[in-house]
Structure formats: C-alpha cells, structure tokens
Design a protein around this nucleic acid. Structure first.
Lengths: 342, 342
DNA sequence: GCAGTCGATGTAATCGATTCCACGAGGAGG
DNA sequence: CCTCCTCGTGGAATCGATTACATCGACTGC
C-alpha cells in the first residue's frame, strides 16, 4: 500500500508538502497542490490512520460500551450514537458487555489501549475500578442510560418517573391492586431506580409493594421468565407484572404462555422500553417509551464537547407511557392513551 | 499516559528489554523480567496499540460491514462475530450500511484507512468498485449472508432452498394456491435468490408466481407495508404473503392490521429469518430460521484463516422451516412442525 | 538599493512501539 | 589457555505520518 513517501516521489516534492496538501495547509503553491493531488490519484493513496493517530495523539474514534447489543433498546441507541458521531466526523467502536462486568472491563481496556478519544458507557455494574481510574485519569467520558453515582462524569438518560406514575395511575384506574415488578440488577441505576419510582407511585395510591412482588431479574429474557414463574406460583399471584425492560417482558410472556394463561384477562403485563414488536404481540403491550435516538445523539454531543474542550452538560429527557391492551380492555378512558404504531 | 520509555527508566533497563518482556521473548533474565513487570505495575503501563500496529502492520482488528444493524438477524450475526473474534484474539469494528451503498463505501474506506486485518461484508449492492478493488488488492475478505458474484472471495451463508420448498409444501397442504412474495432488493443475492427459489418451489406444485404477486421491497419494514397494501388492493389478493426478511414481515403485519384483516383467516403470512418475537406475535409467525450464530462464527474462522495464511473455505449451512400458526390452523399435520420457543 | 516580510518548500525530529545487529560476559571444549 | 557459542542486553533503525525550524527567493516600503 502506497505511503506518503511514494506520493512525494511521484509528485516530485517532499513529504512535508504532501502532508500540507492533505491537511489543507494554506501555504502550498497551486502547482505543487495539483501535482500532489494527481500523484494521490495515480497511486490510489490513502493516508494511514494508524500513523496519523500516533503522531497527532487523536484517533477520531469514540468507544461505546453497551450493556447488551441484543436488546433492541441498546441496538437503537448504538445506531443513533454511530449516526451522530459520523455526522460530527468521528467513528465508533462498539463493545458489547452482555451484562457481564468482566466483559465490560475487557472492552474498556481494549478501547483505552486503542487510544480512543472518548468513551460512552452504559455501566453494567456499580463501579469497575478500571472505569473509575480512567475517569479520574481524565479520559473524556459520558454515561448513557445508566450511570455510576459519585463519579464526576456527565450523564445522559431518560427520566421515567412521570411515565411510571402515569402507568400506575392507568393500572389503578383499571382496577388492578396487586402489582408486581421484575427489577433489573441492583448494581445498575436503572435497575434500582425503576423499582423505587414504582414503589413510590404505588404508595401515592395507597398500595404497597411486598417483597414477594419484587422479583430480581438481570435485564435478560430468561430472568423475566424465571421471576414470572415465581409470581404465578404464589398463593395470591399479582394481577399485573411490570417488567423493567423489554427482554424481561418477553421472558414473562413466555412464562405466562407456558402456563396457558392469557394477557390481560388472567394477568396484565407492562414493560419499560417500547419496541416496534410490542404493537404486534398478542396482545399489544403497554410500555414506557424512551426517546432513544435523542439520548444517543445527546450523549455523543456531550462527549465531543468534552473532547474538544467545551464543557459538557448532563441531559435528562422524559420517557412517556404508551398504552396498549396488555393491562386491560378499555384504554380509551385514559387521557395519555397512545395506540399509534411507531 | 506512561510509555515504554518510562517503564524502561523505572526498571533501569532499555526499551528493547521492556519490549522483550512484554512480548514474551525467551532471552530475558529472570531479574530483568521481574523489574520490568514491577515497573509496569507501578506505572499502570499499557502498551499503545496504535504504535504497536504501526510497527507490526497488524491491528488484530476485523471490520464488519453489515447491511442493517436494526435488523435482529444482523444484530445476532454481529454479536456472534464479535464473540468468535474475541475468542481468537481479535476485536471487531462494526459499520452499519443501513442498506445504502454510499454508507457501505464510507465504512469500507474508513476500515481500510484504519488498516484492519480483514473485512467481513454483507454487501448492500451488487458490486461497489471500492470493495472489488480492495479484494483484488489482496485485503483479506469474506462475504457473509450476501455476496457479490464473480469475485474470488469466500462466502459464508445459509441455504434456504430446502426450507423454502418445505414452506411451499406446507402452504400447499393447507390449501393455499395464490402465493405472493415481498422480495428483497434485486441488487443483493439474497434478494434475488429467495424469489427464484420460491418461484421454482411453486412450479413444482404446478403453481405460478405472477408479476402482480411479486412485490419489490428493500428489506425494511416500510417497504413491506407498502407492498402488502398493493397486494391487498388487487382485485384478487393473494392468500399468502411471504416476506423475504423479518422487517418486511413486520411491515406486512402493520398493513394487514391497518385494514382490520386477520392472520391467518383473511390472509396468511410467513417470513424468512426467524426471531424471538415471532413466537409472541398475533398469531405466532411461521418462519425460516437461519443458523445465525454458526454463520457468524464460521465467517470469522474463514477470515482469520485467510489472514493467518491458511486457505479459507466457503461455508453453506442449511436454514430450516419453523411452522407456527400464521399460515393456517393445523400445523400438527406437518412433519417439520416446530413450535418451540427459542 | 537594502532591510524586512512573506510565501513555498525541504530537512529532520517526533510519536511509541518492534526488532536487527553488535557487544560483552561466561561457559564449554580442545 | 585460547577459541567459539550462547545468552542477555542496549543502541539505533524503522513503521508513516505531522510539524517546528531553516532556507531561499521575491516582493514591499523606505
């Protein structure tokens, strides 16, 4: 593969001049520029990004370490992150942590070794020393969706508080009183927070959230299935199961179906995270939709602000309730009803 | 960030010795090795992968250019590719082409500039000159899922022929005679091939595939919706719609639902690509399942064989029919029935 | 007409690693 | 006791770019 030296030789100039042409440095004669450009064309020359990065100490690359790519929510997040980054002249390397702290560390280390310009993380656990060190050492970093408390890193996330309150009001209006939740891992902020907000919202209606109605999941489908089976085995099973993410809702659906029960007559179901398929499940699933694309874009902008020396801000965007039929038959009574497709 | 020089100074040896220790070169004294390791520990030194790549001309990185990350099939493919690559000591950079040739070229160029060791591509179109040049120039390359005919690059893909024949037999046995297909882009091998195999399978039952029953889609949900609307507007609409991928099936479902029609009573639906949600749609959707994970792993192995000087082989794995309820009510009659969840 | 400025260009240092080559010490063999 | 290897080590070249500095010619202004 042709190097800058070959181009210089072909054009009959020095490598410095070639570099100047390539970097649009002003003081290059029209003649030299033309000869260099012609040589570049002839040789099919492309600058070696590795060499360039070594010299300039910038890779124009962002790292994105995501909890689980197979989760449609994170897939969409990754997509919007890549789009915005590309628009701003950066590439993205995605690392899939699969909800495993060791894998998360593997990817963080790998990305750091590659000298990425900045790191976007949705942490799997409460505080890997590696990540904390990186943050302290000054690696530009932004948390997205989830975060680690007590670290001075901007956070871009959705606020589900009012949407969860709307959901509980909706469920209460439909006559449900025994509400259960499949929680995410306690090590994650979203795992903890959604339970707490749910509990508080229940309290506002005079309802409790007994321990038996709080199942511990891990944001994966299998845990949703397991927890739901536990709920169904109770002497007094809940009337509603609220899954803290879409994959656990899928698992819950599996478990309910395996028992031959029907949603919502036998048991109601709602989920955090809205995805396209929820419109077509049997029945369509009531869910809390996050502004996923906007979160991804905001996170990238914050990170690049930080990289380029501006001061990044944390961003919190509201999630909203999308009522469908999985919690009861007459959503029309509810003012926040939204049965649209997308 | 500490460099190899700092480590050398701290350990009281030369950079050559540090490098030897790091690369497990045999001729280093136990004493020197211990001092270097201690210095590495003290300084928290990590080798700069950029510098290393420049010198060794290897990045231990594979590029994966995928047609559409939001498509669950490709998400799963990407995941298995990353897993296998990681197991073999490589990282993966994913580029999402979004079914757009210009974006595909952008990513290929970007990956080539970064001097990735090899490229895995599921081409969006029939032959970007950039990619053909790269292949000719000797860039290790493997096609996965889709390929470009006439290029000397190994292909790893699923063969849907027998599964599509099984599907047509299933549909025929259920009494369906007017079968339509939502095709993928003619520029892709999978787009063309699935239609041809479908047509041939119909012929074996004495059925034709009229032009009116061949809709042109682009593997995205919206096109599935549009084509299906066209089918439903026909004086004699088809009895079955077969979508050539899962997203177009989703669009078809949207269109059918918008008309207030029911599957399978009013119209039957089947899809190429099986995904978890198909179990829970209303009704569960009959689909052709590809061995996605195995494809991803085989593709990585072929590519790394090529990179490391061995001779890679093309791989074709069979897809299989998974019968559910979207084509008619009594799948039990069919020997290939499979109603399992996963 | 000469000093000073500016524009175009080249030379060489540099980034952080790997690796070839040279060198000295020490042991084996004659 | 001398020669020849082997082993451990360091010096320095190298990968392909960027960029500070030096140089040189031409032009400007006094």
């Amino acid at each position: 593969m042709a190097s800058i030296k070959d181009v210089a030789a072909e054009a009959g100039v020095s490598v410095a001049t070639v570099s100047r042409v390539l970097n649009e440095h002003p003081s290059v004669s029209a003649d030299a520029r033309a000869r260099v450009l012609a040589a570049v064309e002839v040789l099919g020359y492309r600058p070696n990004a590795v060499a360039r990065s070594l010299r300039t100490d910038q890779t124009h690359t962002l790292g994105l370490v995501i909890s689980d790519v197979m989760n449609p929510y994170f897939t969409e997040l990754a997509r919007s992150v890549e789009e915005e980054a590309r628009a701003l002249g950066y590439s993205v390397i995605i690392g899939n942590a699969d909800e495993r702290p060791d894998l998360q560390d593997h990817h963080v280390r790998n990305l750091l070794d590659r000298r990425i310009d900045g790191l976007l993380v949705s942490p799997t656990d409460g505080g890997s020393p590696l990540m904390l060190d990186a943050a302290r050492a000054g690696t530009p970093m932004v948390f997205v969706d989830r975060w680690i408390p007590g670290v001075d890193v901007p956070v871009v996330r959705a606020d589900g508080q009012s949407a969860i309150r709307d959901l509980v009001a909706h469920l209460h209006a439909l006559g449900h009183r025994r509400l259960a939740i499949i929680a995410g891992p306690a090590a994650t902020t979203t795992g903890r927070e959604r339970v707490e907000v749910f509990r508080t919202a229940l309290a506002a209606h005079g309802l409790e959230l007994p321990d038996a109605y709080t199942g511990q999941g891990d944001f994966q489908a299998e845990s949703g299935r397991r927890v739901t089976e536990g709920f169904l085995d109770l002497a007094e099973p809940p009337e509603v199961v609220f899954a803290a993410d879409n994959l656990m809702a899928l698992g819950a659906l599996d478990a309910i179906r395996a028992r031959g029960l029907r949603v919502p007559c036998d048991i109601a179901l709602a989920a955090f995270d809205d995805i396209r398929w929820f419109v077509h499940t049997d029945p369509p699933i009531t869910a809390i939709a996050q502004p996923t694309g906007e979160l991804g874009r905001a996170a990238v902008r914050a990170l690049i602000d930080r990289i380029e020396g501006r001061t990044p801000r944390s961003v919190t965007l509201p999630a909203r309730l999308v009522v469908r039929r999985s919690c009861g038959e007459d959503p029309a009574e509810n003012p926040v009803t939204n049965r649209s497709t997308s």
